[in-house]
Nucleic acid binder design. Structure first.
Lengths: 188, 188
DNA sequence: TTTATTTTTTAACATTTGTAAAATGTTGCC
DNA sequence: GGCAACATTTTACAAATGTTAAAAAATAAA
């Protein structure tokens, strides 16, 4: 069981002891493509790790959906506002492929944070890494044009380009699908 | 000393014991308006708490500076990449007023994270709160026009509007100063 | 106060991106 | 295959924002 966890990117830094603690509380689940596993306006009680599959987080607008996050194998996945503030979240998370996930109840995870220094530091680093990545994107939007952001997305996430619908990538990059089409037509 | 720390927003949640641990390592410093206390491309060894004053974080571009963060009394302030990845940072932080700050060496803070569960959880929550705020801004840029973002900035940060140059606020909102001027002219 | 410096506003024009709708391409299913 | 549903591209036009430059206003310095 512990060996199985250690194969997953986000768990590699943890000691056997901590992995053992975590393994007492986890559960494997399997969902089909299209399943919404996190719902906006709900307190979602689970913290997930995506073992296999792809996911996107998005917000619903009046006549659009904005995708602002993609997850791949080894990434963690949770309702930000449920996890951080114990309040209903603002985002939905949809699985874009048939996926397998590991999950742990937030309550159980918080109990581990209360007792286990290593796991708490692990949780701290997860938040920090997400933070720095999110801030980078905010800055990139100011300095780089949409075409350049698209090119970097291809370079950094070649898997996603192949497997994710362009309309989702367009909103992730902060442009409409029409604009993304124009960009793609230009650099061909 | 501990009472003094407890008056600062970011420390209010900590126990006397933890504040006492922290107080062993802190130092009060005072800088003039215009001082750059965090430099891009350097590993900056301090974690600061702004006791009094206002600060902004910005990146330098070819012919522009982009401000992407403001700090007020009680906020924490550090080179993201130094703190998180022990690498030179991408941002400068400038004090916009004469300010007093508390600082602690990152090395000392990391030692506390290694031993003290409460302080580690405090560090985790700092990252989480920054994360959720940054993500909100990213989403807001997709859903809200520049005029609406400006109005919300006024509502949520009335202090900053009074005390910060509009050119900095413009880039924080993701528009040019010319556009911000037009927005201000319209809603007058 | 007077001058110098910086910040903010205004103007004219160029560019980018958005909107809406149609055309084309793709996928999956009966 | 052929239909239905969905995804992507293309087109024409509209709206928003950027660029550049200059004037006006505000602030700081002498």
């Amino acid at each position: 069981m512990i060996e199985q966890l250690r194969n997953i990117a986000v768990f590699t830094s943890l000691s056997d002891d901590s992995l053992h603690e975590i393994s007492k509380h986890i559960e494997y689940v399997k969902y089909k493509k299209g399943t919404i596993i996190i719902h906006a306006d709900k307190i979602e009680p689970y913290f997930y790790v995506l073992e296999k599959g792809i996911a996107r987080a998005y917000c619903d607008g009046e006549n659009q959906q904005i995708t602002f996050w993609f997850g791949q194998s080894g990434n963690v996945l949770f309702s930000f506002n449920s996890y951080i503030n114990n309040r209903p979240g603002y985002e939905n998370v949809e699985l874009l492929e048939n996926s397998t996930l590991i999950r742990i109840r937030l309550n159980d995870l918080f109990l581990l944070y209360k007792d286990n220094l290593e796991i708490t530091n692990w949780g701290r680093k997860i938040a920090e890494q997400e933070l720095i990545a999110t801030e980078r994107r905010l800055i990139d939007r100011a300095f780089k044009g949409a075409a350049e952001r698209y090119q970097e997305f291809i370079d950094q996430s070649p898997e996603l380009i192949k497997r994710v619908a362009l309309k989702h990538i367009a909103s992730y990059l902060g442009v409409t699908q029409v604009t993304l089409s124009r960009i793609r037509a230009t650099c061909k």
